[in-house]
């Protein structure tokens, strides 16, 4: 049985490679773009930039707090620093440094976080951060972006280089379908309606946008027409797009590779409650840590794959 997917792919690639390629291109476009990494240059795909611009790249060693502070300093000096490490070390480990030296001080620092979420896989829960979006979106001044595939991550990386102000950019490790257009325009804060529908809206971010695309096709086979909206920017949230869609469909599902507590779903719930209370079902990790396994196994076990989105969509519709 093959699904009639509205978006398809011929190639898979990791989103971190989209970051690495976008970072190199941003560096070629703007001589003020500089890079820092805490001993994970290979994993973050920052090596090509380092090779081409060695005088604009700083290996900080395994010292993330120092890396964030140096980034703030480089920004004071007029540079546009991209500081890269795993999402766990880029947020939880250095929350106070980001809070005081970057966000409160309004520094033009790009925090580039790879290996976010369960799809990090076998390394297990110590590295699978599921709270980073929540921590970052709570910080005043911070823009929070979570793109869905290689192409969108590359476009987002180029866009944040031109955006003035602190940004948290989240991406991941696994090889993932490339289903969005090459060389797309990336508008920070602007949601993208990928599929039109009338019965339920699926708001998805990051890797789960692909799962939402698959879920839409599965629902359509049962005569349910879901609208799929790609929320690549968690903050500032495109409230207008959310409200317009739910006004039409009357209910919604949020889907993210993150704790339900404090994630995208929470932001959507706040918007709906204030302006148009409607049933909302959450697809996310429910107050637990992850574990070792393959990305596919983990998305299944923790209830984050297309089948779970289908179930949540039906539950939301039933509550209308």
């Amino acid at each position: 049985m093959s699904l009639d997917l509205k978006f398809t792919y011929t190639e898979k690639k990791d989103t971190r490679s989209g970051f690495g390629d976008g970072f190199l291109e941003a560096g070629r476009k703007n001589p003020n773009v500089v890079g820092l990494c805490a001993d994970l240059i290979g994993s973050l795909k920052m090596g090509d930039f380092q090779k081409e611009f060695p005088e604009r790249f700083f290996q900080t060693g395994i010292a993330e707090a120092n890396m964030i502070g140096i980034s703030a300093g480089l920004a004071i000096g007029g540079k546009i620093p991209f500081a890269g490490t795993f999402a766990n070390f880029a947020t939880g480990r250095v929350y106070d440094q980001i809070r005081q030296s970057v966000a409160y001080s309004d520094k033009n620092v790009k925090i580039c976080a790879s290996h976010a979420g369960l799809t990090l896989g076998e390394d297990g829960a110590t590295h699978q951060i599921l709270e980073d979006l929540g921590m970052m979106k709570m910080l005043p001044h911070m823009t929070v972006i979570n793109p869905c595939d290689y192409n969108q991550t590359k476009a987002a990386t180029l866009a944040i280089a031109e955006h003035e102000g602190p940004v948290y950019l989240r991406f991941g490790r696994p090889s993932w379908p490339i289903f969005t257009p090459k060389d797309q325009k990336f508008e920070i804060g602007k949601a993208w309606k990928m599929i039109d529908g009338k019965d339920v809206t699926i708001f998805a971010t990051g890797h789960l946008v692909w799962e939402a695309v698959v879920a839409e096709a599965m629902l359509r086979e049962e005569g349910i027409h879901a609208e799929v909206i790609n929320i690549h920017t968690i903050k500032p949230l495109d409230e207008e797009a959310i409200l317009e869609s739910v006004k039409k469909t009357g209910c919604a599902v949020s889907a993210e590779e993150h704790q339900i507590n404090g994630g995208l779903g929470d932001s959507i719930a706040q918007t709906l409650i204030r302006h148009n209370p409607a049933p909302l079902e959450y697809v996310g990790v429910n107050d637990s840590f992850g574990e070792s396994g393959t990305p596919t196994q983990l998305l299944e076990k923790y209830g984050l794959n297309a089948e779970n989105i289908v179930k949540a969509a039906k539950a939301a519709i039933a509550r209308k």
């Binding site: 005088e55 604009r56 140096i70 300093g73 480089l74 007029g78």
Partner: peptide, 15 residues
């Protein structure tokens, strides 16, 4: 935190 920030500014000056 300040020493790290100062180092970053010093490196920007070098660039």
């Amino acid at each position: 935190q300040g020493l790290s920030v100062a180092i970053g500014v010093a490196q920007a000056k070098k660039i």
